[in-house]
Design a protein around this nucleic acid. Structure first.
Lengths: 336, 336
DNA sequence: CTGAAAGCGCTTACAG
DNA sequence: CTGAAAGCGCTTACAG
């Protein structure tokens, strides 16, 4: 591999000048710049990023850490991150830790090993001590997106989960539903407790009493929606509507309802969350809550860029959702 | 950040010994090892990967380059890659180039900038000159998986696309179908031409003549399946079966058929490819061809590891598929 | 088993 | 505008 030395020799200048000509063309005479550029091209020079990072102490790389890369929700967020990062000359590494905390920690270590300058964390599963020191300060530049650590002071970008669910629940109530169940995500997530609270708040404004067994906890997968949906639909006092904490679980409910010959939306209304691609391709099409995923990614990346540049950022950004009524919800009808 | 120097000082040894104690514990006296380890822990030592890579000329990192991270097919392959990489002490970077060749090239440059030791390429979109030199030799350690460059000599891991499609097409023929259409992926992909060939071969063994307009070319998205499916189903000589080059497009066809009130499988059989998660959750469940995605990822990573270790690898590995008959295919019936 | 020393390839004050 | 020189933090032949 050619190095600055090779370029310098060929261009008849010092390595310092090569470095300047390539990095700060205006600090160098026009003619020199041209000579260096030609020489660089001729020897096929490609800078050694390790040497540069070692010297400058920055890698111009950020790592986005996600719990599960096969979750469609995250992948769209990543696209937004990449768009902005690219525009500002940052490389993006995607680290999927597959819900394995040891693996997640290893991605965090890209910071201490100086391979990344900052972290975009799309999860709240990692122990917060890994992120905050004893004074409650971030150990490194970090932004959380979608998921977040409640009252941690860690900058985050997300939607108003509580409000979004409250709105959708109200619409269900207005349609005349009185027996509404909910399949949550893992309840450790602040995001899920917020969504559950929105649900409860909406119900609290009515006289409806929801039995405890109407709220069950899944894990965001198709399979868990299928299983828990089947469970809810086998209840004596079968719910007329099931609100799921994401689209995948809602699609699982759709499947089990079909198998149990329970018509959606006539005998059962189903709501998802996220508005991922398949929500428009299932049958019936899913009523859901749109999250501006790409925008979340873009905003989070911009925030991280601000932090890396020491600009004081807005520590918490809440982006708007949109309640999308499609074919999977309707007024409850007499059951056949 | 603490460095070897700090550890050396505290442990009362040289930096050389620190380095050895941490990297090759058996080259050092037991007592020294313990002292160094304690000192390292005490000062919170974390090795600077850039310095190490600069010195050793390897990063212990591989990059897997994919055209679209929101494609479920790829994400499962990545999981397999990660499992193996992790086991052998390699870090995995995921680079999504979003079908943007400039971006793809930038990920390839992680090699020349020495941030990655090898490439796992899940695409055949990038110009082959970026990969092979004038002599047709790989410029760097690389393995392609799923997609591949035909007759390029680049090591690849994939399935027998031609044979898989041939088998499924035959089953359609045996069911009594005579009017079978195909929605392909982008025809630049060798993978797609192989699948098309399998289709044609199966038909060639019969007297059935398939009109040219029965073969249309999509782009692997839900939307393109929907659109092209609608097109095929609006034909005067409407096909009785549509074979799609992936599940997404097949699910798009399912949707348009539903809207056109064409019953699947009674009036239309639909076949996908890949066996991705949603294929079991659509209605009807999709008949498809299972690809061992995780195994593909594992195998490809092992192959790359062999190449990195200069072990002569098997340059082309073909893994078995499985034809899964589910609810979206049936014998053609009199149309209503 | 251990240390002194060189060097990986870059960038950047400093001096001119 | 340009160059000589130092140094980022590590590892590894070499010598003892």
């Amino acid at each position: 591999m050619a190095t600055v030395k090779d370029v310098a020799r060929l261009a008849g200048v010092s390595t310092a000048t090569v470095s300047r000509a390539l990095a700060a063309p205006d600090k160098v005479a026009e003619a020199t710049r041209v000579r260096v550029e030609r020489a660089a091209a001729q020897v096929g020079y490609s800078p050694n990023a390790n040497a540069r990072s070692l010297r400058t102490n920055e890698s111009k790389t950020i790592v986005v850490i996600i719990p599960d890369i096969s979750n469609l929700f995250f992948t769209e967020v990543i696209k937004g991150v990449e768009d902005i990062a690219q525009k500002y000359g940052y490389k993006v590494l995607v680290g999927d830790f597959n819900h394995d905390l040891t693996r997640g920690q290893r991605y965090l270590e890209l910071i201490s090993s100086r391979q990344a300058d900052g972290v975009l964390l799309l999860s709240a599963e990692l122990p917060i001590e890994l992120i905050l020191d004893e004074e409650g300060e971030s150990r490194f530049p970090i932004v959380t997106a979608c998921e977040f650590y409640k009252d941690s002071g860690i900058p985050s970008v997300r939607v108003d989960n509580e409000y979004s669910v409250q709105v959708a629940t109200k619409s269900l109530l207005e349609m005349g539903h009185t027996k509404i169940a909910m399949i949550t995500g893992p309840m450790e997530n602040p995001l899920c407790s917020d969504r559950l609270r929105g649900f409860e708040r909406a119900l609290a404004q009515t006289k409806i009493v929801t039995p405890a067994h109407y709220v069950v906890s899944g894990d965001f997968t198709l399979a868990s929606g299928y299983k828990l949906g089947g469970q809810l639909l086998s209840l004596e006092d079968r719910p007329q509507a099931i609100f799921c904490h994401n689209d995948e679980m809602a699609i699982g409910v759709l499947k089990v309802a079909r198998e149990m010959q329970i018509n959606v939306p006539k005998a059962l209304s189903v709501i998802g969350f996220d508005n991922t691609a398949f929500s428009e391709y299932c049958s019936p099409e899913l009523t859901t809550i749109h999250q501006p995923r790409r925008l979340i990614g873009e905003t989070a990346m911009k925030l991280l860029l601000d932090i890396l540049a020491q600009r004081k950022p807005n520590p918490e950004m809440v982006l708007p959702t949109q309640y999308l009524v499609r074919g999977s919800t309707a007024s409850p009808q007499i059951e056949s």
